[in-house]
Amino acid sequence: MMLQADSLHVARSGKEVLSGISFSVDAYEVYALLGGNGAGKSTTLLSFLGFLSPTAGSVLVKHTDVYSDIAAARKAIAYLPESASLYEHLTAQENIAYFLQLAGMSASSPAIDAALDRVALSPNARRRKVGGYSKGMRQKTAIALAMLRDTDILLLDEPTSGLDPNAIDEFHQTIRSVADSGKAVLMVTHDVYGACHAADKIGMLQGGKLKGEFAAEGHGIDIEAVRKAFSATVVPS
């Protein structure tokens, strides 16, 4: 088990945001947490990163309680915030090289180029500063960085919001290939169709509670069932 939330309760500014959610993500697995605004999706990710202490329950990364060794948990995780966070004054290559150095790693230019090839960032774009990139190009750069960091776990916060349909497809393919290489991917999103397309398992989050889980069976996840469940979470009857 790469990630595990066990009866997790988290409060922010005195208000309970997560109310006892439990789920887990294995290696080779893409888990999508679906939910409307304020459901507690991003809070869940921040809990795994050790930014928000649980008021009850626990969060485990590779079987170890995050808050017993935050540094170890963070080393095992590559995190992509909603707006892929990169230094705008640097090129894609410089960004990747810099972040790898900060992580205590080094990567040669050919290795960085190879990673950028895998995410299909054009060679021309790689020489430009990230400040002029589209969101899709930033996501690709961030994914390339995550691949080079070679962490076991990838956390993605609304990774496809603002991307055009083609970029979303490309992104899902990339995520799938990352998971297929043995990583555990946890993404939070409100993109029902994207989640069904890319994930192996979907958790439906509403008001800080996990209202249900959908797993891929046969030809994948039942999109219609997920859509209905999602509609129920965002438009309460």
Partner: peptide
């Protein structure tokens, strides 16, 4: 503002 800080902290810096 550019969320780079969250990436840095999430990396264990």
């Amino acid at each position: 503002e550019t969320a780079v800080l969250s990436s840095l902290l999430a990396m264990g810096i």
